[in-house]
């Protein structure tokens, strides 16, 4: 469920970048204050472990298809919220760079969706609240499944909101939710059981790995948790503020697409000199007899509505091809230049 750059608007992408950087700075400061030196190499190799672990596929029961772990909640159980969040953020950063999972702008949103919810919400509020010291396997299983499912549901909801607010998809809000939430419920159930299985099995092999870092994890309780929730609340309000400002400035956000589904209005085209010229051209050469431009009267009322792109017109196509040819020639030229430079 990695968000992609192409589905984001600059405002939404930027907001989530700011939020995620803020969270990274906050978690780093918390870690520095109480740093157990052992954590530095442990966090590093656990990040690499999540990566390597995601390369191992298993068969999902009853479906025959294969899946892999996400590992966010597992990290939270092993490392506690702050360290786990930093590790998740680092894994996502490397995925964005080397596998282009998501992209650079979407990285902020991805760190938010897959880091904040498991580390700062699902783990402290659900997992930690259920699992006490020496908890039974059953309790661990229930806690893992619940916290993973809720973490993933929040993440999926975030993806829907981010995409809708960016105003790029035409998927109606409800349909989009119906697509995303059930899929992530299924994923969450499997991930939850697998996480529980790993925690229980590792505890049987080496109990200290699961229990010993309590000192580090203790950071998550008491006053500092309250602070986290307050900070999250402020961030949520800020985010909401930016969103609503954004949504009102650019009506092609939520309301507009809803309006469209009911077919209340067509898409007006902004008056532009080229389309006029083109209509003329077409009339003259009669290449496109039933070519019709939508009515152009409405645009004064709502000037901020998006323009229909002129690539759909003849000049657009011609110009597009020309620019592409120039780019390709530029590329070939650079290659030739490089080869020549290497020879001399």
């Amino acid at each position: 469920m990695h968000m992609a750059d192409a589905l984001l608007s600059p405002a939404v992408g930027g907001t989530f970048w700011a939020g995620s950087i803020g969270a990274i700075a906050y978690a780093s400061r918390k870690l520095r204050e109480n740093l157990d030196d052992r954590l530095i190499p442990l966090m590093g190799v656990l990040g690499a472990f999540i990566f390597a672990g995601q390369m191992i596929n298993f068969t999902i029961p009853g479906t025959g298809s294969s899946g892999h772990i996400g590992g966010g909640m597992l990290l939270a159980v092993l490392l506690g919220p702050y360290a786990a969040f930093i590790v998740i953020a680092s894994v996502l950063t490397i995925q964005a760079l080397f596998f282009a999972d998501g992209g650079l702008l979407a990285l902020g949103a991805n760190i938010w969706n897959m880091g904040i919810y498991p580390a700062f919400i699902a783990y402290p509020l659900i997992y930690k609240a259920i699992v006490k010291k020496n908890a039974s396997n059953k309790v661990i299983t229930i806690a893992s499944v619940l916290s993973v499912v809720i973490g993933l549901q929040l993440g999926a909801l975030s993806v829907v909101l981010e995409t809708k607010l960016s105003g790029i998809t035409e998927l109606p809000f409800g349909t989009f939710l119906l697509l995303m939430q059930p899929i992530h419920l299924a994923i969450g159930l499997i991930e939850g059981f697998v996480t529980a299985g790993i925690v229980i099995y590792v505890r049987s092999l080496r109990p200290d790995i699961v229990d010993d870092l309590e000192g580090v994890k203790a950071l998550s309780t008491g006053g500092s948790l309250k602070k986290v929730i307050i900070v999250l609340g402020i961030l949520a309000v800020l985010t909401g503020g930016v969103f609503s400002w954004f949504a009102s400035t650019y009506p092609d956000g939520l309301e507009w697409s809803i309006e469209k589904i009911y077919g209340k209005s067509g898409v007006p085209e902004r008056q532009n000199p080229i389309s006029g010229t083109l209509t003329e051209i077409q009339k003259k050469i009669a290449l496109l007899p039933d070519y019709s431009l939508p009515a152009t009267g409405k645009e004064e009322e709502k000037p901020s509505w998006p323009a229909v792109d002129t690539i759909t017109s003849l000049s657009g196509i011609l110009g597009g091809i020309m620019v592409l040819v120039v780019v390709v020639i530029f590329g070939i030229g650079m290659r030739v230049l490089r080869k020549k430079m290497r020879k001399t």
């Binding site: 990274i24 590093g44 690499a48 472990f49 390597a52 672990g53 191992i56 680092s90 950063t93």
Partner: peptide
């Protein structure tokens, strides 16, 4: 960016190759 995060990236990258190889052997 916080140093904790940068060092985390460096450590992750350093051991990524080591752990991928180990995983590969296990698989």
């Amino acid at each position: 960016l916080p140093k904790v995060f940068v060092i985390q990236l460096l450590f992750l990258y350093r051991y990524l190759f080591v752990l991928l190889e180990e995983t590969f052997r296990m698989l």
